[in-house]
């Protein structure tokens, strides 16, 4: 797990559900096939209505037309990120696009679990209303061990919550490696 990194931020609102993260028509691709896995990156966050895509201005495509990865490796969102459908294609889409971490005020349970157990990205939480303090395109520094996020565009620093009891799973790289390391899975 990379514990400290700098990246451009992409900012979203509250209740971003998994249909917005990866619309249902793209679920025909099979994430177990590498060429098809890439396609989820191409369409990541393509279901977000235009006026809410990349706050505060909106109208910012997450992935440019025809490309497979994003310029924004940190997604910042409000409450209840990843609600709705249980599709694992949602954290897969963000991972395929190159996202390293999502920072939200809260998560829907299944998205959080899929992100952790699949080892796709680090889902961080904060009590701060970050979506009003960071603008899409700001360069931010995420410091997981230091539990903080610095907006290098403004110099402001924000507290992040510690990862808590899912940290060992994230550090192991997902459920399978965690279960092996802890002796729960012998193969």
């Amino acid at each position: 797990m990379e514990t400290k990194f700098r990246a451009l931020a992409y900012v979203l609102g509250d209740n971003i559900d998994t249909d917005q993260i990866i619309p249902a028509q793209y679920l025909v691709y099979n994430p177990a096939v590498p060429e098809e896995y890439r396609m989820f990156g191409r369409y990541a966050l393509s279901g977000v209505p235009r006026d809410r895509a990349g706050l505060p201005s909106g109208g910012v495509p997450f992935v440019r037309d025809g490309e497979y990865s994003t310029d924004y490796q940190v997604v910042i969102a409000g409450k209840n990120f990843g609600c709705g459908s249980s599709r694992e294609h949602a954290p897969i889409a963000l991972n395929a696009a190159g996202v390293k971490a999502v920072i939200a005020e809260s998560y829907a349970r299944i998205f959080f679990r899929n992100a952790v157990n699949g080892g796709y990205l680090v889902p961080l939480e904060t009590d701060e209303r970050l979506i009003e303090a960071v603008r899409t395109g700001d360069l931010v520094e995420v410091d997981i061990d230091g539990c903080r996020l610095v907006n290098l565009a403004t110099g402001q620093t924000f507290r992040l919550k510690p990862l808590g009891d899912v940290r060992p799973i994230i550090e192991a790289g997902g459920l399978f490696r965690y279960a092996e390391r802890s002796g729960l899975l012998k193969r």
Partner: peptide, 12 residues
């Protein structure tokens, strides 16, 4: 059961 943006197709 769901009416988030785009759920039934068009996101608008």
């Amino acid at each position: 059961n769901r009416n988030f943006p785009g759920r039934m197709g068009h996101k608008e």
